[in-house]
C-alpha cells in the first residue's frame, strides 16, 4: 500500500521546492505588528523579513553533495505575490530549459527534451519532497516563528571572535512543528543569521543550516549562501548561493503563463 509514495526522487523534488518559493525568498508581505514584542521577537522578525518582498527576480546556484554524486545547478527565478513563481534551469546543459511554474494550487513543469508540459497537483507534491535535506516544514512554513515557538535568548556575547546572540526556540505545545528545539545564532551587530540547528524531542540534533557569504543582495547585506547539513550524514549537504536577488521588480501576472514556461 502506498509504497510508491513513500519513496523519494530528490532531483525533481528539490526543484519543486524552489518553485514553491519557500527556500529563501518567502514571498509573503510582512504582516502588521499586533502584540507588544520582546526584544527576541523583534530580532527574529527581522530575520524572517530578510527574504520577503512583493516581487523578486533571482539568479542562484544550487550545489548538492551526497555520498553518490555531487552536482551544481544554475537557476533563474521570478516571483510575484505568494501565488506565482517561475523557475528555470540554466545549467547543466542536459537539464537546460527545464522550467516550472507554480500558479496557485497548480504546478506545471516543462520538459524541453520531450517537449511536454506536465501538471502536478499539490497532493502529488506532498509525496515528493521527502528524503531530501529539506523537510516539509521548510515548505509549508508560512507562519512566523513567534507563533510556533517560545523564544528566549540563551547566550549573548563573544563566540569564535564574533559578537553573537543565541536564541533557543522551544515549540509551543500545540505548534505544528516536528522539532523539539531550534537553536538560532545571529550576529549581534547586523542581526544576520549564522546558523540554525534543529533538534528532535529527545534533543538529539537532526540537521543544521549554516549561513555564510554575507554581501549586498537586493540592496541590503544578506547571507548569499545557505547550506543544509543532515546530522546523520555529515558529509552530505545541499547549498544554495544567490548571485543576484532583486526585490520590487516590475512583473505582471501574465508573465507567469504556460507560454512563458516554454520560452528558452
Amino acid at each position: 500500500m502506498l509504497s510508491v509514495l513513500r519513496k523519494q526522487f530528490s532531483a525533481i523534488l528539490v526543484f519543486f521546492l524552489i518553485v514553491q518559493g519557500l527556500l529563501m525568498v518567502r514571498m509573503s508581505i510582512a504582516s502588521d505588528v499586533r502584540e507588544p514584542e520582546n526584544r527576541a521577537s523583534i530580532m527574529l522578525r527581522h530575520i524572517d523579513d530578510l527574504w520577503r518582498g512583493e516581487s523578486s527576480h533571482s539568479l542562484f546556484s544550487m550545489n548538492i553533495r551526497t555520498a553518490r554524486y555531487s552536482r551544481t545547478l544554475r537557476l533563474e527565478g521570478w516571483s510575484l505575490g505568494t501565488d506565482l513563481t517561475l523557475v528555470r534551469i540554466l545549467a547543466p546543459k542536459k537539464e537546460q530549459g527545464v522550467s516550472s511554474l507554480k500558479s496557485g494550487k497548480h504546478l506545471y513543469t516543462y520538459l524541453p527534451r520531450v517537449d511536454r508540459t506536465i501538471r502536478l497537483t499539490s497532493s502529488m507534491m506532498m509525496g515528493s519532497w521527502m528524503g531530501s535535506h529539506f523537510t516539509n516544514d521548510d515548505l509549508v512554513q508560512e507562519s512566523r516563528r513567534e507563533e510556533d515557538y517560545n523564544i528566549a535568548i540563551s547566550y549573548e556575547g563573544e563566540r569564535d571572535q564574533q559578537a553573537i546572540i543565541e536564541f533557543t526556540l522551544m515549540p509551543k505545545p500545540n505548534a505544528v512543528v516536528v522539532w523539539g528545539k531550534v537553536v538560532l545564532v545571529i550576529l549581534a551587530d547586523s542581526l544576520l543569521p549564522l546558523s540554525e540547528i534543529f533538534y528532535d524531542e529527545d534533543l538529539v540534533q537532526t540537521r543544521k543550516i549554516v549561513f555564510s557569504d554575507f554581501k549586498k543582495l537586493g540592496g541590503e547585506i544578506r547571507p548569499a549562501t545557505l547550506r543544509v547539513i543532515p546530522s546523520d550524514k555529515p558529509n552530505e549537504f545541499t547549498e544554495i548561493t544567490y548571485q543576484l536577488l532583486d526585490f520590487g521588480v516590475p512583473l505582471e501576472d501574465n508573465f507567469f503563463s504556460l507560454g512563458q514556461l516554454k520560452r528558452r
Binding site: S10, R68, K94, L111, V114
Partner: peptide, 16 residues
Amino acid sequence: VVLTGQASDGAMANEL
C-alpha cells in the same frame, strides 16, 4: 506517458 525522475548521477531524467 511522460516519465520524470532522478537519474543515478543526480540529474533530472525525463522521457516519453
